[in-house]
Write a protein that binds this DNA or RNA. Sequence first.
DNA 1: TTGCTCCTCACGTCACGTGAGGTGGC
DNA 2: TTGCTCCTCACGTCACGTGAGGTGGC
Lengths: 279, 279
Amino acid sequence: MLKISDFSRLTFVPAKTLRYYDEIGLFQPQHVDRFTGYRYYDMGQLPRLNRILALKALGLSLEQIKQVLDDGLTAEQIRGMLRLKQAEAQQRMREEQQRLLYIESKLRQIEQEGKMSDHDVILKRIPVVHAASIRGIARTQELMTPLLNEMFDTLAKHIYAHGKMSDKPEECGITIFPDAEWSGENIQLEAAFGIISVLPETDRIHMVTLPEIEQAACVAHHGPFTTLGDSYTALTQWIGSNEYDIVGPNREVNLAYDRDGDPNLWVTELQFPVRKREK
Amino acid sequence: MLKISDFSRLTFVPAKTLRYYDEIGLFQPQHVDRFTGYRYYDMGQLPRLNRILALKALGLSLEQIKQVLDDGLTAEQIRGMLRLKQAEAQQRMREEQQRLLYIESKLRQIEQEGKMSDHDVILKRIPVVHAASIRGIARTQELMTPLLNEMFDTLAKHIYAHGKMSDKPEECGITIFPDAEWSGENIQLEAAFGIISVLPETDRIHMVTLPEIEQAACVAHHGPFTTLGDSYTALTQWIGSNEYDIVGPNREVNLAYDRDGDPNLWVTELQFPVRKREK
DNA sequence: TTGCTCCTCACGTCACGTGAGGTGGC
DNA sequence: TTGCTCCTCACGTCACGTGAGGTGGC
């Protein structure tokens, strides 16, 4: 019979852990002195402890190990459990892999710019948006802003006219750039305004449903539009260096925008639909 | 100003999490109504939240994120932090990789035998052992057991004669097989008996220090020696299928052994020094 | 007698999730 | 008035680790 510290030294399992396993009924001493409470272990218990350690190395929880040891699971049940653990481990592998890419990308970025970028990219799902929309084409880049202003003005007037403007954060202006390539000429534009209720349509204004984006890489741009370029650069660089591909038209969402207010308070979210690049 | 549920929907961060971040001072609402306690958020806070989420994706703890955001760390400090996180992620990757090997090996083993093997292999470090030792050579396999018995008898007599036998679990018989190959003829043997105190030596008996084994693959064999072969098979198969190499002489440690007692109570630990195979 | 070992609480970990029970706003 | 939303506790998670304070054994 071995005292707890002897058994601990033999097995390299800390005494505290042995006490814990005793407490949860996973692995109990061969004998407990009823007066002193001292735990006594036996060499013959080694196989059970080894099995516990082996199953732990496979990723089972102590609760699951107890089941396997004491509930007489069938070989088929155990295989099912292991295949689940296998899938979980593979999932964690992928997560760590992706995390490593994030870290390396961030390290390179700091290396280049001498500090952490102000443009933090996050991935999220964008739900469907019900919106009133106007499409247009800007001949040149200079014409883009006035055209967009006019389009959004028209939308806003229409919505106000029907008294349907709410203050829900989902209800805001969204600019969509259907062109995959940015040529700088004949820029296709869609101005959409998220709307929860349904409005009558006109020649120019149509009710549309912007599709869900399963995975969008997003940057929250803070400040005037003149510095949007920096945010775009940071976002597209991130997408490339983390092995994602752009798989659809990008959007600009005006989360905070007041044309006559202080541009430093504006917040615009840039969204690119992306998908993890195949290996 | 957005209520917590609006901000939560926008950012996909659960309201409970936002409250928690408020509580720990990581991310606080722009304004809290002093009467109702309602939290109100602002679009202008989005960049900070995004930075928090981005740093979390890199594996930083919330405490570390708070430091990065509020304590104005230098670029060099941040790089150090990230390189640490990188090393941690790589370590976790290796662990998951090894876990996957364990699982696959276990699945194959169950596939073959229709049940979980009784021989659970575990890795552990074997500390140095101070021992009294006798070496010998057995011409044939049949001569091995009588020779070992004689060797251990001689050792035991010597130790008893000097009154140095204790009941510490470290003090037990160890058989060492210095041959890497098992030819079945002229088997080199070393019988050692762990001893804490120092004994005088004789022609045959020498005090030795068995070296530490950094990593040993071990099986606790329960029962008579006649079934040792099964344990050896299980152990060597495990070593191969988990991509380890045997890098030294193996040992048999008699953790529970009484030559005149019930062999079903014997416990023998088989130990093979191993090293992870290089890629 | 003095350390050393063993014991049992009780609390902490990390980032929240899950109710319970209650109030404010439309 | 009725749901809906928001609030604040309090407790649980998982596998132990870290003391505090006390006793048994040689």
